[in-house]
Amino acid sequence: MDEVKLSLFGFGNVGRAVARVLLEKEKLFRERYGVGFKVVSIADTSGTVWLPEGIDLREALLVKETFGKLSSWTNDYEVYSFTPEEAVREIDADIVIDVTNDRNAHEWHLAALREGKAVVTSNKPPLASHYAELTEEAKRREIPYLFEATVMAGTPVIGLLRENLLGDTVERIEAVLNATTTFILSRMEMGLDFEEALRQAQRLGIAERDPSGDVLGIDAGYKATILHCVAFGPVTFDDARVKGIAEVTAGEVRRARAKGKTLRLVATVEKGRVAVEPKELPLESPLAVSNNENVAVIWTDLLGELVIKGAGAGLKETASGVVSDIVRASLRKA
């Protein structure tokens, strides 16, 4: 049986969700894939815990959830003050996992690839700005660089485009890719104004304390850019035309409903074009999703219209995408 060494960067909500899946499904991975995982390092903003023999994930989760930071872990473990790039060079690992929000992570993703380490990430900005450089480096070295969880969490739209539609020519993609804006617009349809709907989303943990990435369309723009890169070829986020929902009024929502339509933040992706903007949709449209659902409608020359819909947010859902990529990278490196 192969033993695969993992180096985990980010131990917030998503990082801990990934750790729980690795714990809970350890037996399944061994029996189904013949792979055992050993987490040799975990990094949060307070430092990096590194143990070549493997870290006790249960204890790591307990320390983080009790004290809020890994640097509080003093028994049996030394906490290092590595930069991410130092860590990927110093720590012996097979797969580097990035579930951080580090906008400059492309630098240490490249360092990991050059060290012969596979990379699995849910971090969107590096791909939205440096897709060509990252994927070309991975291809040159024949090393997995996987990023399913960057778009639609665990709903496998990236895998569909990269691995399944190999005989099809993708003509266009339309998608709703941000669950926070869908929640806000849904609540506005129930009579709340934008600010009230946003506050409710923040109370429920659906919107961040700083919601600008969602309501200004930046998050959806990153995801739409990545879809273009996979389906049509490299562009960057700077090439995208993005308008969010911050200026949508209660009156606009009411008028759409009066016409039997709904407003959603829609990404349109065509060769050479990425656009994100609020659009009126018929209620029967596959894009008229609710709650935390994401959806992509993909048109190809052979299949015609293909709809893929599922959870686009949530800890378990994002962990699903990350862990699937970890398994996939492990099997490719075996």
Rank of each mutant, 00 (worst) to 15 (best):
E78K: 11
T121K: 01
T225E: 06
W108T: 05
L28D: 13
M188C: 06
P286C: 05
V176G: 07
S72P: 08
E293W: 12
V276W: 06
E277L: 14
G12R: 06
L287T: 02
P282R: 15
A267Q: 03
S212N: 11
D94H: 15
E31A: 03
L204P: 06
E137N: 05
L331R: 01
L127D: 07
V119I: 04
L113V: 10
S324Q: 15
V18P: 14
H106N: 08
A87V: 08
I226S: 13
P156L: 08
A288G: 10
A153N: 05
L287R: 08
I55E: 07
G272W: 03
R264V: 06
V266R: 05
R32S: 08
K223G: 08
V88W: 02
A197D: 06
E65F: 09
P156E: 04
I245K: 01
R172N: 01
N75W: 12
L113E: 06
E53K: 10
I308M: 12
H130V: 04
R257H: 12
T169K: 11
A288E: 08
F29M: 04
D44H: 06
S186P: 04
F29P: 03
K117Q: 09
S129Q: 07
D92K: 13
G167R: 11
L216V: 12
T300A: 14
W299V: 15
A17T: 15
A224E: 04
G205T: 12
G116Y: 13
R162G: 00
F183P: 01
A105G: 11
V40M: 13
S129E: 12
G251T: 10
I226D: 05
K279I: 04
Y131T: 01
Y131V: 02
A179W: 02
K124W: 05
V266F: 05
F194T: 09
V274W: 01
I97H: 01
S285P: 06
A313W: 07
I173C: 00
E24S: 12
K279E: 15
N292C: 12
P278V: 08
R30N: 04
L198F: 05
P126Q: 07
A43H: 04
I95Q: 05
I308D: 00
N104K: 14
S186F: 09
G251F: 11
L315W: 15
Q200H: 12
L57C: 07
L161N: 02
L6G: 09
G244R: 02
D102H: 11
Y33G: 07
P125Y: 06
I95F: 03
K117I: 05
R58C: 10
V297P: 06
V307L: 03
R141K: 13
S72V: 09
E171S: 11
L227Y: 15
F11H: 01
V49Y: 03
A132F: 11
D92R: 11
F237K: 12
E195F: 09
E252Q: 15
A19C: 15
V88K: 00
D239I: 00
V63L: 03
V307R: 00
R141C: 12
L331M: 02
N294F: 01
L23M: 11
S129H: 14
L315S: 14
E148S: 09
D56N: 15
E284Y: 12
